[in-house]
Design a protein around this nucleic acid. Structure first.
Length: 590
DNA sequence: GCCGTTTTCGGCCCGACTGTTTTCAGTCG
């Protein structure tokens, strides 16, 4: 059993314990343990099997959780979880995803109404029965109904990162069967869309039929939706992502890849173009209508070329001008992962990160970066131990010493990477920043982010952001729309007005590469670019492994037609340092 | 439930807001 799966079961147990009203510290220990297992570099099931090893050596795992881990690995559950599932059906865990309902309210609902599904919860709200319970009223009913709508909207969709991991796992598995030349993900995953509905994998090679057979017998193939000679469909894993695997002859691989990559709109436009040119385009190839002879199909490049087009990067295939640009040879040179030279938004154990500055810097160096900016939270994030002015100033000083080599770090060697002192400073409700300007002035790099009061009216939120932009130390708007994919919509504001002001003041936009955010999205980023905006792509990493999420941010930037010249952290360390130096005179600095 | 250790149990877990009340429990980040 993989660590992630073990962790999921522990998290679920913690959620159930919370509904059951158990001790908060114990629940916290379960979550800590889950998180420790999830991030542990070795497989926990292997450690459990090895008599010379102890799982209690993993920080956060003590005697109690060690026993639970043994049970989970052996039989997929543990005693405490079993007990709780006697009391509450697993479906109530979905209630925790509804905004406005916490464990206490859910426990009360279960006690009074014995509901187990979201549908039943919705009915209670519509029948105005929530308000019969203490401390619940009409506003809560409305909020819950809104949140149920959001929940339904996101059902059946999956994060890009999740689809990507599944695709990689399956590609490796299918290749093991032998005789497989290539396994290529198509569809919205290949286009780098932030969420995907299902996963399309194209398999070529003599062993493709064997691969299909291996696919439907995969241990995580939960439900076989169909299987034929050339295609099989499966609902995969407990998450239920639908995966289609198609076996293709090599001669039509390019046409099939093109066809199954989409988007639908792009393909419709492309087929129309083909017809105008006397061709017919399908997943089997490009054919001349007059004599049905095949013109192209082996490669995607060949298909596009025969249609008088440059090859179009999948991220652009949305029928938003890419076909015209390809015809004119005017496709942009898109930013690539290898263009990125530094990651400039990350957290450490000073606040809610899981690793120290040194560990994050080493991990960033391992990514091949020239520089990092460490950007912990500011003080309003009290639960995360956010930095106040004193700590901000001390941190800035420490980074200056690190960079000048005055402070040899723990292991004696220097970091081998340039560090910028940064802060992810909260933009408070009134638009002021959480940290005094003179303390911000000590830092190299200030990100302004909204983390609270996201339900303001659009006009109010616009004012709030405009006010934040007045701070001369602010260099960048972090995750500018606040969305959490499949979970929370962007907060409303007048983007163009804020973007115009940001451009005027030389404040940039973050493309936050965290798979849950991917914020700005490609549409807004493209708008901002048209207005003269500049960007950074950064991961908001809370753990060294999150640094690898950069590619999702790059995908978003590519979907927005951005090139390396639009992205500030494609510059060298010196170039970046020069770019972030303040250019606007300080007026009325507090 | 974990951790650290004063080796046997106490500390861990903040602060603001919301909606419902009429003084605060519950949610959220």
């Amino acid at each position: 059993m993989e660590n992630k799966e073990i962790a999921r079961i522990l998290y679920e147990t913690a959620d159930l314990m919370e509904i059951a009203g158990e001790d908060g510290f114990r629940i916290r220990s379960y979550r800590n343990g889950a998180s420790a297992v999830e991030g542990y570099p070795e497989r926990v099931d292997a450690i459990l099997k090895d008599p010379s090893r102890r799982v209690t050596d993993i920080p956060g795992i003590g005697k109690g959780l060690a026993f639970a881990l043994g049970e989970v690995v052996a039989r997929g559950s543990c005693e405490r979880r079993d007990e709780l599932l006697q009391k509450y059906p697993a479906s109530v865990l979905d209630f925790l995803k509804i905004q406005g309902l916490g464990p206490k309210s859910i426990a009360m609902l279960l006690e009074h109404y014995r509901i187990c599904t979201i549908d039943e919860l919705e009915r209670l709200c519509l029948e105005q029965k929530l308000r019969a319970l203490p401390r619940m009223g009409a506003k809560l009913e409305e909020k819950v109904l809104r949140s149920i709508a959001q929940y339904r909207k996101s059902a059946g969709r999956f994060l890009l990162s999740f689809a990507d991991r599944t695709a990689q796992e399956l590609a490796a598995y299918l290749a093991e069967g032998g005789g497989v030349e290539s396994v290529t993900p198509a569809g919205s995953l290949r286009r780098g869309k932030e969420t995907v509905g299902d996963l399309d994998l194209l398999v070529t090679g003599l062993g493709a039929a064997v691969a299909l057979e291996r696919f439907v017998t995969h241990p995580k193939a939960a439900d076989i939706l169909g299987r034929g000679e050339n295609k099989a469909s499966v609902r995969f894993g407990h998450e239920g992502l639908q995966v289609d695997v198609r076996a293709l002859p090599a001669e039509s691989h390019g046409a099939a890849l093109q066809y199954f990559t989409g988007s639908k709109e792009h393909n419709v436009a492309l087929r129309n173009r083909a017809v105008r040119m006397g061709f017919k385009l399908s997943e089997y190839g490009l054919f001349r209508i007059s004599d049905e002879s095949k013109v192209a199909g082996e490669t995607e490049e060949g298909v596009y070329e025969a249609l008088g087009l440059r090859w179009i990067p999948p991220e652009l295939r949305e029928n938003q001008g890419e076909i015209e640009a390809a015809a004119e040879g005017a496709l942009p040179r898109l930013v690539e992962l290898s263009d990125i030279r530094g990651d400039v938004h990350m957290h450490t154990t000073e606040t809610d990160g899981r690793a120290s500055l040194e560990e994050m810097a080493h991990a960033a160096r391992a990514q091949g970066y020239e520089y990092v900016a460490i950007t912990d939270h500011s003080k309003v994030m009290a639960m995360m131990n956010g930095l106040d002015e004193t700590r901000v100033i001390a941190f800035a000083r420490r980074v200056r010493e690190i960079n000048s080599g005055l402070t040899p770090l723990g292991d004696g060697e220097d970091l081998g990477i340039r560090v910028f002192s940064g802060l992810e400073c909260d933009i408070l409700k009134d638009g002021t920043l959480d940290i005094a300007w003179d303390a911000l002035a000590e830092l190299d790099w200030v990100i302004g982010s909204v983390h609270s009061h996201m339900n303001m009216e659009a006009a109010e939120m616009t004012d709030r952001l405009l006010r934040a932009l007045e701070c001369p130390h602010l260099r960048i708007l972090g995750h500018p729309t606040g969305r959490l994919l499949l979970h929370r919509d962007p907060f409303p504001f007048d983007f163009e007005r804020v973007a115009a002001e940001a451009v005027k003041r030389g404040v940039w936009f973050e493309i936050n590469a965290s798979p849950e955010r991917l914020d700005l999205n490609s549409t807004l980023a493209r708008t901002a670019k048209a207005m003269g905006g500049k960007f950074v792509i950064s991961t908001d990493a809370h753990h060294p492994k999150h640094l690898a999420n950069m590619r999702y941010g790059v995908a978003m930037a590519r979907r927005a037609w951005l090139g390396p010249e639009d992205i500030l952290n494609t510059r060298t360390a010196d170039g970046f340092a020069a770019a972030i130096r303040r250019q606007i005179p300080i007026e009325g600095c507090s």
